Each structure stands twice: as structure tokens, then as C-alpha cells.
Computed example of a mutant assay.
Amino acid sequence: MTTKTKSLRISSDLNNAINDYLKVTGESFNSFAESAMADKMENLLDLKDYKEAIKSDDGTHFTIDEVAKELNIDL
């Protein structure tokens, strides 16, 4: 995988908070930033999927017992 360089401007307070976090975790800034951005994108995609699912919800719901019975799972 090739990598690309990006730069960003952040406030001094946020920079200090990130540095404190990195000292505690031992994580690199790149690892932290990459993970945080990936999490943010995943959350946005999850929210999009959730909103689409709500639109197609026909109101049918099942209890956990009904699902377990259908899947032949003993609770």
C-alpha cells in the first residue's frame, strides 16, 4: 500500500490533548489519526445505512425468543 502525506491545522489545546493521549497510550500520531478518521467514516456510513433501514422498516418486529426459536437456538 502506498501512503500519502496530509497536513492539518489544530488548536493548541487539541494538540496538547492529543500529545497527552499519545504519551499514555504509546501510540504514534499517524496511527491515532488514521484510526480516528477511519472510525469517523465508519460511523457516518453506519448512520447512512441505519437511516436507509428505517425508511424501509415495515414495522415487523420479533422478540429474542421468536428469533431463537426460528434459528433453533436454546436460550
Rank of each mutant, 00 (worst) to 15 (best):
I18P: 03
T25C: 01
G26H: 01
I10D: 02
I54M: 13
S31A: 14
D65F: 05
A36M: 09
I18G: 01
L8G: 06
L47A: 11
A33R: 00
T60N: 13
K23L: 13
E66F: 01
D57C: 10
D20T: 12
D58G: 13
F62V: 09
T25K: 10
S28W: 03
E27L: 12
N72V: 10
S28I: 00
Y50A: 13
K55N: 10
D58S: 14
K48P: 01
Y50Q: 10
E70T: 10
M41I: 15
E70L: 13
N16I: 04
S12Q: 11
T5H: 10
S35E: 02
Y21E: 07
K6P: 00
L45D: 04
T60P: 01
S56W: 03
M41R: 13
K6Y: 15
K51M: 12
Y50W: 09
L71Q: 11
E34H: 05
N43W: 04
N30P: 05
K23S: 09
H61V: 15
T25M: 04
F29E: 03
S56A: 12
V67Q: 01
V67H: 00
M37S: 08
G26A: 05
N30S: 15
G26Y: 02
A17L: 11
A38L: 13
K51G: 03
Y21G: 02
L71K: 14
G26E: 01
I54G: 04
M37H: 05
K55Y: 03
Y21T: 10
M37Y: 07
T63Y: 08
D58Y: 06
L22A: 00
K69Y: 07
D13G: 05
A36L: 10
F29S: 04
K6W: 11
K48T: 13
K40S: 07
A17G: 07
T5S: 15
N72Y: 08
D39F: 04
T5Q: 14
T25E: 06
K48C: 01
L47V: 06
S28E: 09
I54A: 10
L45C: 00
N72I: 08
A36D: 02
V24C: 02
I18Q: 02
E66N: 06
V67T: 10
I10K: 05
E42M: 01
E42V: 03
S12K: 12
D46H: 06
V24F: 04
L47T: 11
D20S: 14
G59P: 04
V24S: 07
I10M: 12
L71V: 08
A38V: 12
K6T: 14
